[in-house]
Amino acid sequence: MKPDPVIIASGLKRVYPLGESQVVGLAGIDLAIDTGALVVLKGVSGSGKSTLLALLAGLDRPSAGRLVVAGRDLAGAGEADLTIFRREVVGMVFQNFNLLPTLTVLENVSIPALLAGRPRSETLRRADELLAWLGMTPRRHHFPAQLSGGEMQRTAIARALINDPPIILADEPTGNLDSANGAAVIELLADLNRRWQRTVIIATHSTIADPYATVRILLKDGAIVDGSWAD
């Protein structure tokens, strides 16, 4: 049986005012992503990948259209609803890792759970488990400045998983990594998708994630020009 779509978008549009003119980020796309899919978003710079990712992450609001993620209507959501959405539904992985420099690895991983009000002891235990899984236990008390790029991205992945979200969004996760570390990170995300049935959406220029994709979406000028579904 085909699973229910976890993401449904119709006529999704995002337009940015720029002086007296406008820049179209997304030109009104229709999309349905099933639970457990591994989606690879592709396109050149300015094609709309990041805009779509920002909308899916609840970091931005659409200018028009409908967007429902994990049963939550993001187009009409208030600020408080979006905060709860970000805590419970999505985990983000960034190209620049975006770790907080004043916190250790363990503290960086724990922070989303603590912000969500989860008990500290439970959070630390879960963070330790994730770090162990990612092979980061020896580095748990190190600060970001003391880590390699691969270690920083593994920390960021652990942070994305701490609240156990059903959807992982990764924005160019290999962009700042060498090929070996990049491959390892993609393998990790694919593992998350395969073993733990997380829906994973990866926005990337490279072809490194293509072999793992269940869905490939090619964006151009804010529109989907090719959407192919792998079997």
Partner: peptide, 16 residues
């Protein structure tokens, strides 16, 4: 700005 937005992205509320 980047750090504060990261906090927002990982579930921090504006109030926090």
């Amino acid at each position: 700005t980047r750090q504060l937005n990261t906090l927002l992205a990982v579930g921090g509320s504006r109030r926090q």
